[in-house]
């Protein structure tokens, strides 16, 4: 078969992570490297200890070889996430404003570069709280589902992927009901 069954209706979290790893992040390199032309663009030169911007997957690659420190994006710190969590609780009908791929990026960074982050454990628990608060809201959205449209602005890519199978199927059923009540 051209496409395995589990890839037909949705993308996988691994694929989302791969897409997110294309985004740029700042690092402090520990090795020198000439400017190099990659397919996604030219990166470098790396001159320790000055900062450089690379795609996240390259940063992860270097980090695993202990050749760089990753600088956390400025939304990934305890203070900022606490603020978002407070907003999340204060505003029951809106999602707080987080980067579209925050969950993939924070997972990758916590997995490979937790020593470059401040308070990784607290970050983990904040991200978990955020996830739960947001999940409750997106499920609440199911109440408003009809056959034509459901606005979900602010939802992140991983969260969309999580609710996709159920929401798509529900809307499909509603479409069928709407169509049969027309005729």
């Amino acid at each position: 078969m051209a496409l395995p069954v589990h890839l037909r209706d949705s993308v996988t979290p691994q694929e989302l992570e791969m897409i997110a790893c294309q985004q740029l992040i700042e690092i402090v390199p520990l090795i020198a490297m000439e400017k190099t032309a990659f397919i996604s663009g030219a990166y470098g030169p790396l001159r320790p200890p000055s900062k450089a911007k690379l795609p996240l997957w390259m940063a992860v690659n270097l980090k695993l070889k202990k050749k760089c420190h990753i600088i956390a994006p400025d939304w990934l710190n305890v203070e900022h996430l606490q603020d978002r969590l407070a907003q999340e609780v204060a505003k029951p009908d809106a999602f707080s404003d987080l980067p579209f791929r925050f969950s993939e990026i924070s997972k990758v960074l916590l997995d490979v570069a937790s020593d470059d982050l401040e308070n990784p454990d607290q970050l983990r628990s904040l991200l978990k709280d955020l996830r739960e608060a947001r999940q409750a809201k997106s499920r609440e959205g199911l109440k408003h589902l009809d056959h034509s449209e459901l606005g979900l602005t602010g939802l992140s890519s991983m969260e969309i992927n999580e609710i996709r199978p159920f929401f798509v199927q529900s809307m499909n059923v509603l479409t069928k009901i709407a169509r049969s009540s027309e005729t």
């Binding site: 897409i19 740029l24 939304w75 602005t153």
Partner: peptide, 20 residues
């Protein structure tokens, strides 16, 4: 995927390092 990091109306959010 340029607008990925910028999904909300409040573009003032400090997410700049990850924007393409």
């Amino acid at each position: 995927m340029d607008a990925d990091a910028d999904t909300g109306p409040a573009a003032a959010r400090p997410a700049a390092p990850l924007q393409e």
